[in-house]
């Protein structure tokens, strides 16, 4: 590869990385909220699937991407409500409930998809990259940063907003306290369960949005298991990001880079490694991430524990 080709490759790579990171950014920032309040939601994968399907079905029926995205968020939150009810109200084990919701998400979406949509084989109109005058036409930089659709750009907004809410509002402060010392919050007269419900709703709503991006902004079809582990990878992203929304944004970008590398290297005929090695890259890197970022120092101290009022 000469220099020009390499630069073009790099620009395309960065552009693709951001696009492929988008579902992870939404899901992991959402999970930061949920885990900061002490709720570990391993049902993210199922939640994202529900979001992906609701988004697809709504856009299929109405032709509107915006309605599709809203349906994705709504579907995710509805699923989150079930999770919250079982883990916060009934105080059941968060991991067990999460595992159940993953099965339900996979099963329900595949069931309805096979019943109504699979035979149609039709896709939907997806969000198109927007052309920003001058910026999109820049050599290399345009390709890398300024030829995305609005959903991809909105990840920056979500990351900033999440940081402001979490660190600059009384809601965010209380939410973090709920994950560290729920009793203090309780004694101060705030409702621990309500904050946890809110955190789970934010988390699953964003996970639903991340799922909806897959069908509305990336592929134009719903496929069974379209999330292919992104919900689980988001859990690792949160650990790597040390439970910070901005961190989650950048760590997701790193994973987006692995996804993009995998896709682009597969297309290169000159690469000799079997394509499966590249396919396994995001999963391998997730494990490496958990090993490199050692310890749980930054984890909310009550993560995974139901709060018992005394």
């Amino acid at each position: 590869m000469d220099d020009m080709m390499f630069l073009t490759f790099l620009a395309t790579l960065v552009g693709a990385a951001w696009r492929l990171a988008t579902p992870l950014i939404f899901a992991s920032i959402g999970e930061v909220f949920s885990e900061r309040a002490g709720v570990l939601n391993i049902g993210l994968e199922g939640t994202m699937l529900v979001g992906a399907f609701c988004g697809f079905a709504t856009a299929f029926a109405t032709g509107s991407i915006l309605l599709g995205l809203l349906a994705g968020v709504g579907g995710g939150m509805l699923f989150g409500l079930v999770f919250a009810f079982f883990t916060i109200t009934i105080k059941a084990d968060q991991i067990v409930v999460g595992a159940a919701l993953n099965l339900l998400g996979m099963g329900l979406t595949a069931f309805v998809f096979r019943t109504y949509y699979v035979s149609t084989g039709k896709g939907i109109e997806i969000a198109q990259p927007i052309h920003i005058p001058w910026l999109s036409d820049l050599p290399f930089l345009g390709e890398a940063f300024f030829r995305q659709n609005l959903i991809v750009y909105s990840t920056i907004l979500v990351a900033i907003l999440a940081t402001l809410v979490l660190y600059r509002t009384s809601f965010g402060l209380t939410l973090r306290a709920v994950g560290e010392h729920p009793k203090a919050v309780d004694v101060a007269g705030r409702n621990v369960a309500a904050y946890r419900y809110a955190a789970v709703m934010v988390g699953t709503g964003l996970a639903g949005l991340g799922g909806a991006f897959l069908t509305l902004g990336h592929s134009n079809q719903f496929v069974e298991g379209i999330t292919s582990g992104r919900g689980f990878i988001a859990l690792a992203v949160v650990v790597f990001a040390r439970w910070s929304p901005i961190g989650a944004f950048f760590v997701s970008l790193l994973f987006g880079l692995f996804y993009a590398l995998q896709l682009m290297l597969q297309a290169q005929a000159s690469i000799v490694v079997p394509y499966q090695v590249l396919q396994a890259l995001p999963y391998l890197m997730t494990i490496v991430t958990l090993v490199v970022v050692r310890g749980k120092g930054a984890a909310p101290s009550k993560l995974g524990q139901p709060y018992e009022m005394r």
Binding site: V82, F86, I90, K91, A92, D93, V96, V97, A99, A100, L101, N102, L103, L104, M106, G107, L108, A110, F111, R114, T115, E224
Partner: peptide, 22 residues
């Protein structure tokens, strides 16, 4: 009937088990 119905039933079994145990 799509065979994935079993996944739904599996998930519901787990949820009901935890609910009933509580």
């Amino acid at each position: 009937v799509p065979q994935v119905l079993v996944l739904v039933i599996q998930g519901m079994v787990i949820l009901s088990v935890v609910a009933f145990a509580k």
